[in-house]
Amino acid sequence: MQRDSATFKGSQQAEAPSAPRLGQKWTRYRIMRYYVVPWIFLIPILSLHAFVVVIPALQGVVYSFTDWSGIGEAKFIGLRNFEEMFFEDQSYIDALSRNVQWMIFRVTVPFAFALFGASLLAKVKRGAMIYRTALFMPFILPSIVTATIWRYLYNPRYGLPTLVGYDKALLGQSDTALWAIAFADNWQFWGFLMVLFLTAMQGIDPVLYDAAKVDGANRWQEFWHVTLPGIRPVVLFMMMMVMIWAFLVFDYVFILTGGGPAGATEVISIDIYKNAFQRFEAGYAAAQGMTICLFAGFVVSGFALLRKRGWDI
C-alpha cells in the first residue's frame, strides 16, 4: 500500500513519453494512439468497478435517508434513521462498543506479537526464511478453516481449556466469547503484520545498532530507541488500517457465534446483515453502513491531524 502510493507520486513527476509535442500534427493516428487507445484499455475495468462499488455506494448514501424494506419504493425520512440509531437503538450502541473493544484488542495484541516476532527474526540469519514462512502461513488460511480450528481448540470437552482444568465453553459465555473470537483472529493475522515490520526493520541502518551497542544498550533499550523509531511509519500506517478494518469485522463473528450468545458478540456488521437480509430494514442497514464510513473518516482524520502536528506517518 505504501509502496503503491510512493510509485503513484513518482508517476506524477514522470514525463509522458509519448504525448504529441507542440508543432506536431494532430493526425487521426496520433489522437487514436495517444488518447483513444489508452482509454479503451482503461474503460472496461473502471466501468465494472464503478458498477459494483461506486454506484451502490452512492445508492447507499441515498437509501440511508429512507425507510426501505429492500423491495419496492423507498420513503424519504430525513435523518430519522440516524436519530433512531444513536438515541433509541441500544443494540446499535452495544454493537458499536464491541467494535471499539475489538479495535483496542487489534491494535495491541497482534501488534505486540508482530513486533516481538519481527525483532527476534531480524537478528537471525540461519533458518530466517523457514521461520518467516511458518509464521506467515496462518494468514493464507480461509477464515472458515481458522474458525473451525479454533472452535475445536476452544471446545469444552477436550479442547485447550481442559488442559488447565477449565471446562466451560469460551465461545458459549457472554463475557469470554468476544475475546475468544478476537484471539482466533489474532492468531491468523499477526504473521502478516510481522512480515511487514520485518521488511521495514531490514531498512534500518546497521550503524545505529552498532552505536547502540557501543553505548551499552540492552535488548529492550535497543528495541525502544533504535528499532521502533526506525519502523514507526509502517507501524502507524498499519495501525490506521487496522483501526479502519476493526469496524468491518464479519467472518469470524458470523462463523463462530453468529452474534450470540444472547447477542454478546453482535458487532455492527452482524447487525447490518440482520437488518438488511432478515428484518427487511434495508434503509436502516444502509444508514448503519454510512456510520462505518463516518468512523473510518474519524480514524483517517485523526491520523492526518497527528501528521500535521509533525508526526512522521
Binding site: G60, I244, A276, G289
Partner: peptide, 14 residues
C-alpha cells in the same frame, strides 16, 4: 479504502 458495508446492501438489491 471505502468500507465494504457502505455498498454491500445496495449491491445485493441491485
Amino acid at each position: 479504502t471505502v468500507p465494504v458495508w457502505l455498498y454491500l446492501v445496495p449491491l445485493f438489491f441491485l
